[in-house]
Amino acid sequence: MDEEKTWILQAQQGSDEAFTFLVETYQKPVFNLCYRMLGEADWAEDAAQESFLRAYKNLHRYDVKRSFATWLLSIAAHYCIDKLRRKKLPTFSLHDDEGNAREYIPDAGAVLPEKAAIYSDQQAYIETLLGELSETDRAAIVLRYWHDASEVEIAEALDLTVSAVKSRLHRARRTLGDLWEDNPQPSQNMERMPYGSPAF
């Protein structure tokens, strides 16, 4: 951690090498957050790059007493939430235009550019269900489960109170539970999601 602080201080003084080290270190968590928020590898790549650029520009405002990871993920989360709100990126809906439950069809024919990572059925399915949550609820769930963030850290990252985070997590689980109950998980094995790798 001390080493990281040194890199951050050097980056704040204008060292590109130091900032490159930070990009190397945090590329995976930032990309993962963007990917889970936006649901598309290309958009996630663009959002992650943009988040790092914003971090680079605002590095002088970063308070070294705070967690750098939380600060960085906060930038990425806000960027993705803004992007989703402004552009209304298409998300897969589990309901058709008339509001009827749609049969879940896995994208079995998807071509994977990298080594294919086979998720369990449940993991792939829960990621699809995430698209049904509101932007901020989704960010809270992703930070909680993919980044192992505490409620305090989520509150800090999303500019919410701790009780608001608890309430959002509660509501998100309820929504996911409702969706799971209405659309039981498919039995087929699915192969999807490029760039998948085991959690750290």
């Binding site: 590329q27 995976k28 968590p29 990309f31 993962n32 990917y35 889970r36 590898a41 996630a44 790549e45 992650a48 550019p113 990298e114 990572a117 998720y119 369990s120 449940q122 993991q123 399915y125 829960i126 990621e127 269900l129 769930i141 909680r144 489960y145 993919w146 689980r173 309820r174 996911l176 539970g177 409702d178 799971w180 109950e181 039981p184 998980q185 999601m193 760039y195 998948g196 790798s197 085991p198 959690a199 750290f200």
Partner: peptide, 18 residues
């Protein structure tokens, strides 16, 4: 359904960039 959701959320995997 809630138990399945929690179980899935507690066994997620990280996505890595290209």
């Amino acid at each position: 359904a809630l138990a399945e959701v929690n179980r899935s959320l507690n066994h997620v995997v990280m996505a890595a960039p290209a």
